[in-house]
Simulated assay, not measured.
Amino acid sequence: MSTAPVRIVLLYQSLLGIYGDHGNAMVLTRRLQWRGIDAELISVDPGDPVPTDGAVYLLGGGEDTAQITAVKELKDDGGLFSALDDGAVLFAVCAGYQICGHSFTIGARDEVIKGLGVLDVETRRGPERAVGESLSRWTLPDGTTSLITGFENHGGWTSLGPDATPLAAVEKGWGNGDSRTEGAVQGQVIGAYPHGPILARNPQLADHLLEQALGRSLDPLDLPEIEALRTRRVAAVREGRP
């Protein structure tokens, strides 16, 4: 008996795709296929119906106007909310992370815009822009830790409410703006600031998202070239090299 492919849903690449974050969807799809798991990458444009049977949904980085449009489109469509209610995982980066909160600000007048409300966070313009390589320490559900590396470029600073917990503790960089915490987790929704794409630079985080969505552990992948690149990247960040 055949089973349906695992669907990875890339949301609004034309709006929230200016930093290469679509690579996160490609990484998830390929890591499933390398394990012999049938996977399908679905790219959803504004105006297209959002499928409700996805396993992982992805939002990327973008500009102010794109954020407003994305929020309106996703609220009007409703498919993402239905998928989350059914247990899907949402992974959002930078601007995508900000719109998942209750509100965020845009423009020189700091206009407050209501977000999707799936993360208990609020984003406001910070006193300076957070730009540069970042490194943070992530504690996995089993208590082990792993480093998350990436490149951040955001003017918004995000504060977490009681229903959200930080994704990681900052070792280098700004993170949520306080230089202490990075990202937020609430149920099956995870937000983070680094680009890179972040899942290409952090394969353990990619597998964590897949395991959350599938509800089971995945066999490890033996890809020494990826681990070697990651080791060099972490060393470069710690040494302050580009």
Rank of each mutant, 00 (worst) to 15 (best):
G143A: 09
V170K: 14
W138T: 03
A164K: 09
Q204L: 09
R201M: 09
P194C: 04
N176F: 10
N202S: 05
S159T: 13
G175A: 10
F151Q: 05
G173R: 10
G191M: 08
L218S: 11
L205T: 06
D178R: 11
G155V: 03
W157G: 00
N153C: 05
S159P: 01
V170Q: 10
A200I: 00
V170R: 13
G183C: 11
H208N: 06
L218R: 12
A206P: 13
P203D: 01
G177H: 09
R201C: 04
L209V: 08
L167T: 02
D163G: 01
V170G: 12
D163W: 02
T139D: 00
Y193K: 11
A164C: 14
S179L: 05
I198L: 14
L199H: 04
P166G: 01
W138E: 03
L214C: 12
I148G: 03
R216K: 15
P220V: 00
P141S: 06
G215L: 12
A164S: 15
T144H: 13
A164W: 07
E182T: 08
V189M: 11
H208D: 00
T145W: 03
I190D: 01
G215R: 14
L218Q: 12
N176Y: 12
G155L: 03
N153L: 04
R201F: 02
N202E: 01
T145K: 12
S217T: 15
L214Q: 10
A213C: 10
N202R: 08
L147A: 10
T149K: 13
Y193S: 03
H208W: 14
D178Q: 07
V189N: 12
Y193G: 02
T144R: 15
S146L: 03
A200H: 09
S217H: 15
S179R: 14
Q186K: 14
G156M: 04
T139R: 15
H208R: 15
L218V: 03
E211C: 13
A164G: 07
Y193D: 01
W157M: 04
D142C: 10
Q186H: 11
D219G: 09
G161D: 01
V185L: 13
D163K: 15
G191L: 08
L209I: 06
P162D: 05
Q212Y: 01
T181K: 13
L160A: 06
H195W: 02
L140G: 02
G196W: 06
A192Y: 00
G156S: 06
S179P: 11
G191C: 10
I190M: 12
P203N: 02
N176M: 09
Q212T: 13
I148Q: 02
G196T: 05
P220Y: 04
L205G: 11
Q188T: 14
E152Q: 14
T158I: 09
D207T: 08
L167F: 07
L218E: 07
N202K: 11
P162V: 00
